[in-house]
Amino acid sequence: MLKIENISKSFNPGTVNETKALRGLNLNVNDGDFITILGSNGAGKSTLFNAISGNFFVDEGRIILDDQNITFMPDYKRAKWIGRLFQDPLKGTAPHMTIEENLALAYLRAGQSKTFSRISKKDEEFFCEKLKMLDMGLEDRMHTQVGTLSGGQRQALTLLMATIVPPKILLLDEHTAALDPQAADKVLSLTKKIVEENHTTCLMITHNIHQGLQTGNRSLFMADGNIILDLQEEERKTITMEEVLEKFKAGAHKDLDNDRILLSE
């Protein structure tokens, strides 16, 4: 459903700070895939997500979503089909607006609301129903400003906002890494539940290799702006950690230092 063909992206080209963040990367995502992405810092994982969601246009290559070439489509248009969560729980919500108003904005992606319509009783009930699913008591605080919520609550709300209109693909960029362990578990289990219920295709970046190999149905390892290891369902179950490191090292031409980074949590 998502086809990435040979994409490249350089930052600050032609200067001493030139970084080739993506180098001819190819990826074919199937409908319903839940893919985890691992790799050391600076491997280009976030840049890959930025390319998919259109924060910038790639220098080379093509991005095709459900047979539509979106390579040159601006980010806000792609957002209709692409949901995204960041590590920073503050990024996905408007702090000075209420929970209800945030949800109403996210729900605009459905493309049904009229420009000059206001939030109706019916919308309110719908949002309330959705909030109950988070099991955080937020349904009783619909008129609270989002800025007063905890990081975990904000991230859970962002997750709900990203999926309230089910996207074709959900991009999760270490979205539990900044939360305390309890909140992280909660948000992760919510993520799995929502993804499962909607059969959403999902890409998840994580720093935790154990979590990475246990979640979803496929794992990608990135280094130097490319995918160097692509493990499918069966392989992931049988492979040992040593073999992963071995293969990673072979693909990345990196020494042990980077293996440690790869393994660090």
Partner: peptide, 26 residues
Amino acid sequence: LSTRLGLSIRATGDNRDMVRASSINP
């Protein structure tokens, strides 16, 4: 400011990335 358009304008000053993520052109 309480209409959908008004809400999007308010969000633009509050979190522009969130506006884009809601498929609105800031």
